[in-house]
Design a protein around this nucleic acid. Structure first.
Lengths: 116, 116
DNA sequence: CTGTATCCTCCAAGATACTG
DNA sequence: CAGTATCTTGGAGGATACAG
């Protein structure tokens, strides 16, 4: 049994999902394997709305998985995001997640693949 | 770009999360690495409500990850669940998810661990 | 450029009672 | 034993406009 902020997690699996679950967190983390500017991230993930991307990044930062760096305070702002050491421990898992999805696309006939 | 039932997934990562995302699916799948009776599953996952367990199992079945077998139609019913061959391709990933959670519990000081 | 602020919708999931 | 049926709700996530 694990707890974070009075929320309970009965096993380590549910605990992991607390960090990378949700619709977009794993996607964002995977993109951040390479350090990125905020605008790069947005361009690479057009399916994620601005608000959601911003909120998820803040949560990832609070969870200690991602670090945000501001390089200048004068406009135009320059901010980038990268994985912390703790966040980097997720890399093999993130790779496995991406890999499994590719395999699934070949196995599950309900999945339609297109260039998009 | 991938599609299932007119829902769009921009990358393989988001596609995987479609299968194992949500609060409990990965937990259920991990328990089903060994074939289980419905009642066993319930006993082992008391944190999951009956309704949710039932719904998730049905979804996992529709997704081709799990197979449900009814062994008798006369009461008392006997039903068990196990991973399909497709579902078994998730096992290494499920293991990694559980493992990472254990490591996180040791790294993230916000996580309180208890016997429960 | 890098975000917030508002408003809104939808649905995953909980609680509880009931059924073949 | 193995589930459904109802009812409810919190919160994740979308759309869009605005801000430092």
């Amino acid at each position: 049994m694990y707890c974070i902020d009075d929320k309970e997690f009965p096993c380590s699996t549910s605990l992991t999902m607390r960090y990378i679950g949700g619709k977009w967190k794993a996607v964002i983390l995977l993109h951040l394997i390479e350090k990125k500017r905020y605008s790069e991230l947005r361009r690479e993930c057009p399916a994620i709305t601005e608000r959601t991307l911003s909120l998820q990044l803040k949560e990832l930062e609070e969870d200690g998985l991602v670090i945000r760096t501001v390089h200048t305070n004068k406009a135009p702002l320059k901010v980038d995001y990268e994985l912390t050491e703790f966040g980097k421990t997720l890399i093999p898992l993130l790779m496995s997640i991406a890999d499994w999805g590719e395999g699934a696309a070949a196995s599950d006939m309900r999945i339609k693949t297109s260039r998009g």
